[in-house]
Write a protein that binds this DNA or RNA. Structure first.
Lengths: 207, 207
DNA sequence: GTCTATAACTCGATAGAC
DNA sequence: GTCTATCGAGTTATAGAC
């Protein structure tokens, strides 16, 4: 709707490059620690262009958060769902995706939204809302998996509550992995979550 | 050992005031977002004095992390342990303490170590170690509670693993509470953790 | 839409008197 | 151990030509 329809082979317009560069730098270094000049250098764009598209650095961050919302399904969920079909295993496969992110960065980079949630939640209401929206999307995807497996869970089970718990465990597990620069706390936390889910499934089975 | 023994009524020396001021500002605003000038103003101290005690801003942060390590038992654990005697309930009472912190700050401030873990873990190895040390202390306190209740838990149960899981849940729950500016995700996550622990206790009972 | 140049300010840190 | 003054680099953002 904002895009002219015939523009199909556009070679990555400047705005796109700015958002993608900012996305990666905010993730790797944090928002405050990333200078506008860093984004400009890395994107090969001049100051004037950035401020043509975005009034402020914060507005650039809001665009980054919108981008994350768009990427949730194509980048995070769909590849996993294509590979794994059992709804419960999909949940743990998504967690495995974040584990891989930790592996590839030697436990230096975790969930970009989680970082921003702690750094920025009280600094801007608009940013906080963008973060909350991303969390809601993630939880809904997980809640969808759990709903599919509803008949294997105890009667009257609250799938949204467990979905929120899964996000909680993932974020807390990533935090500890980064603080200890080790996958062990991540693996231990996911194993505890698995134990909990197994007990829920076993409980539903015996009834 | 660093303190002269006769100095008992010292009116809070400058160094102490700097560490305490920095501790509160880093907690409320984050490390990068807090300027050295903010610390100086709030502490009523001049630049020259700060750099007499600390070579850099990062060294001030390390002192803050040491202070948190010292405060863990007197400020976080002991008051709860004095009030609650059942070891399992102690765990949940400690979580209740963090809930109160969220209540008092309208879900704006959570765990100061968690904030720093995500903001600073990859920026300085010394800082990361100070954070990890705080996490280890917290987990050990929780593992101590669980060990006391060992006979009520399933045979061969790994108390350290559950302690790590409890920290994971607490940090993830605080993150979501701050992002949504609501206690609901915190309460839901703690309720799920309680459900898990109840199932562990019930499992041990039937054997 | 993009360019260069720079305004206006804040940052962490230092020097040297007291 | 504390003071004032300030350095030099970095910050976000803007102005105005092209």
């Amino acid at each position: 709707m904002e895009q002219t329809p015939q523009a199909k082979t556009k070679p990555t317009p400047t705005r796109e490059r700015l958002v993608e560069t900012a996305r990666h730098l905010f993730w790797a270094r944090g928002y405050e620690a990333t200078g506008v000049a860093d984004v400009l250098r890395e994107a090969g764009v001049n100051s004037g262009s950035l401020y043509y598209f975005f009034k402020t650095k914060e507005e650039l961050l809001l665009a980054v958060l919108d981008r994350y919302t768009e990427l949730l399904h194509p980048e995070v969920m769909d590849p996993v769902f294509a590979r794994v079909s059992d709804p419960i295993e999909r949940v743990f496969a998504v967690l495995g995706g974040y584990r891989e992110m930790l592996t590839m960065t030697d436990c230096r980079q975790g969930c970009p939204i989680g970082n921003l949630a702690l750094e920025m939640s009280e600094k801007s209401e608009a940013v906080r809302e963008g973060i909350a929206k991303n969390f809601v999307g993630w939880r809904n995807a997980m809640a969808g998996c759990l709903s599919e497996a509803r008949d294997r869970l105890p009667g009257g089970f609250d799938c949204d509550k467990l979905a929120a718990f899964i996000l909680t465990v993932m974020e807390g597990a990533i935090m500890q992995a980064r603080a200890h620069r080790s996958l062990d706390p991540f693996d231990a936390s996911v194993a505890s979550l698995r134990d909990y889910v197994d007990r829920l499934l076993a409980d539903a089975e015996t009834k």
